[in-house]
Amino acid sequence: MSQTVSRAIEVLEFCSERPRELLEIAQLWDVHRTTALRLVQTLEAGGFVRKDDRGRYGVGFRLAALAESALEQFDLRTVVHPHIVDLSERVRQTVQFAVQQGSRIVYVDKIEPYNSIRLNTRIGGYVVVHTAGVSKAILANLAPTQRDRILNELTFEKFTDTTLTSRAAFEQRLETVKETGWAYDDGEYESISNCIAAPVWDHAGRVAGGISITALKAQTDLVALEDLLPDLLDTTTTISRELGWREPRSADRTA
C-alpha cells in the first residue's frame, strides 16, 4: 500500500472518532502542518472529510453515503437486520450483531430502543474481544487456527474486576460457551452493563457471526438476562436457517 493511500485511510479513521484540528493530524504522522494540509484538502475536495465552523476536520458526507451503500450491499446484514429489530422490540433491550473480519471482530448492526442502554460501540467499530459476549460466541466456534490468529493479538487488558485478564481464563470461558451454546459478558468492559450472546450459523455449519442482548445491570442483571435466552436463541436459529443452516441430527451430534 502506498504511503499516500495509507495516510488517507489513517486520517479518515482518525477523524471518524471526533473532529480533529489540523495540528492533531500533522502530529499523527509527525509531519509539518503544510504536508498534512495537502492531503486533507484533497480528501475535502472529494467529499471524504469536511471542515466545521471551528476549522476542525470530520467525516464528509460522501464517505457517509458510501458507508450506507456498503451496508446495503452486505447481504448478511440485510438478512439479519429485520430479525434483530424484532428481537429488540420483544425484549426491549439493545441488540448488536458482529462478525469476524480477519483478526478482528466487527460490529455490523445495532438496535437501541428508547429507554434502553446506550452503548459507545458503533457500526464498523472493533469489538473488545476478551470482554464482549458476541466475540466469545464467535471465537468458541471458530476453527483453532482462526481463533489463535485473533487470540495471539490480545493483551487481555483489565477494565473491571470481572475482566478475564489471561489467555488461559479466556480459553476456559470459550470451552464453556462451546458446551452451552451461548456466551455472556458479566460487566467485563463496563461494570454498569452485562449481556448474553449466541452464534449465527451459515449453510456450511460455520459460525457466521454473533448476536447479543445488552442491558444495564441495575435494571436487568445477568440472571434476569438469562430469562431472555429463549428469545435470543429463537432469533439466532431463525437467522441461521434462513442462511441455509440445518440443525445436526441427533445421530450426528452423538457420533
Rank of each mutant, 00 (worst) to 15 (best):
F74D: 15
H81Y: 14
A65W: 04
T254C: 04
D231H: 14
A218G: 13
G209H: 10
L174N: 08
R38M: 09
Q93N: 04
V177K: 09
K158S: 14
Q219Y: 10
K217N: 14
N141V: 12
D30R: 08
F74Y: 15
Q27H: 07
F156M: 08
E112V: 14
F97Q: 02
A70V: 11
L139D: 10
Q93P: 01
D186F: 13
R50G: 12
D30Y: 02
S135K: 02
S166P: 09
I84C: 06
I150L: 11
I25E: 02
L228V: 05
T131Q: 13
D227H: 06
E13G: 05
G125W: 03
G46R: 11
R118G: 02
S212H: 04
A255N: 09
T94S: 07
V127W: 00
Q3P: 00
I123R: 10
V5T: 12
R206C: 03
V91K: 03
P113T: 03
L12H: 05
L243Q: 02
D53G: 10
A215R: 12
H83C: 06
A204C: 02
V31S: 11
T42S: 14
R56V: 06
L39W: 07
V40T: 12
G124W: 09
R118W: 04
V40C: 07
Q41W: 00
V59K: 01
T163M: 09
T236R: 04
L229S: 10
A132V: 10
D221I: 13
L76G: 06
I196M: 09
A168N: 08
E153W: 00
A168L: 13
G133R: 09
A26H: 07
V99L: 07
A251F: 07
Q219A: 12
E13C: 01
N194G: 15
T235W: 06
L28F: 03
D75Y: 02
E171Q: 14
V128F: 12
V127R: 00
L174H: 04
F97S: 03
T94A: 03
I9T: 10
L76M: 10
Y107D: 03
G60K: 01
I117A: 07
N141I: 13
N194L: 05
V49W: 08
A251W: 09
Y126N: 15
Y184F: 14
T180P: 00
A208K: 10
S103I: 01
D252V: 04
I84R: 06
A251K: 13
R56L: 14
L229N: 04
K110Q: 15
V5C: 06
L37F: 14
D202V: 03
I105R: 00
G133Y: 08
V5M: 13
L71Y: 09
D231Q: 11
A45F: 02
A204H: 14
V5W: 07
K51A: 09
G102S: 11
H203N: 05
E179H: 14
T121L: 04
D109M: 07
V49P: 03
I192K: 15
H32D: 13
S69T: 11
E13M: 01
E190R: 15
L174G: 04
V200I: 15
E72F: 00
T163G: 02
